[in-house]
Design a binder for these strands. Sequence first.
DNA 1: CGATTCATGTCAGAAGTTCTTACATGTAAG
DNA 2: CTTACATGTAAGAACTTCTGACATGAATCG
Lengths: 120, 120
Amino acid sequence: MSEKQLRRSLAVLPMSTVIALTDLTARQIRYYETQELVHPKRNDGNRRRYSLNDVDRLLEIKDGLASGMDFATMRKLTAKKEAVAEKKKVSDTHARRVLEAEMQQLAGMRPAHPSLRQHL
Amino acid sequence: MSEKQLRRSLAVLPMSTVIALTDLTARQIRYYETQELVHPKRNDGNRRRYSLNDVDRLLEIKDGLASGMDFATMRKLTAKKEAVAEKKKVSDTHARRVLEAEMQQLAGMRPAHPSLRQHL
DNA sequence: CGATTCATGTCAGAAGTTCTTACATGTAAG
DNA sequence: CTTACATGTAAGAACTTCTGACATGAATCG
C-alpha cells in the first residue's frame, strides 16, 4: 500500500468530524453502517473511528441516494470498487516492496523518528 | 494552497487519535500548546481538533526534546517554517481560489457533489 | 546544600460526545 | 390501507476531554 493509501485508510476521525465533513446526521451514518455500506473501526472505548476513505464512501452514498439509487445497488458498486482496489494492490507488489524498503531506511537512518510528513 | 496542503491542515483529529499517532500523553500535548508550539482548533464543545500538520509538529517537538533542544529554540524554528509556508501561500492565490470553490461545494452548497477523493 | 524551574504525572469534578435501544413518522410501493 | 424504508427523536449509560491543582524527579542556580 502506498503511503497515500495508508493515510487515506487510517481510521482516525470521530463521528462529529464525519458529520461536519459530510453534512449527514449521526443517525444516517449509523444506518448506512447497518446496511453494510461503511465499516468504521472502533477505538478501545467502542467509539467509531472513520478513515478518509469512509468519508468518501459516505459522500458517494449521499449522491447515490439523491439520484434514486437503492442500498442494494450501492452495496454492489462498493463491492466492485473494492475488488478493483484489491487487484491493484496485488499487482503493486513490486512497487510496494521498494517503498517499504525506503520507509525502513527512513525509519532507521536517524536515532529519533522521521517526521510523519513522509508517511502520512 | 494545494489540495494536499488543505487536507493536511484540516483540524479533524481528536486528542485520542493524536495520542495514538504520536505516542505522547495528553498532558504533554497540552503542555506544548501552553508553550505556543502547536495551535489546535476547537470544536463547538471546546474540544481540541488537530490537523495532520499539528501531528507532524508534535513529532518534531518530540524529536527536538529527545535531542536536547529547548522550547524557545523550537518556537523559533516553527515560526520560520510558518513564514516560509505563508510566502508560498501568498504566491498560490490562483490555486487557492479554485480550491475554495471546491470546498464550498463539499460543504453542501450544491445539488451534486464530487467525491471527496479528489480533494482529500 | 537548599531553592527554583522545568516537564510531566496524577486526580477530581464538570462538561461534552457517542453508544445502543426503542418508539415515532412521512413517503413510496404494493 | 398497509408495509417497508429512511430518518427523527429521546433516554440513560458509558466514554472522552477539559481545566485546575497538587506532586515529583531532574537539572540549575545562588
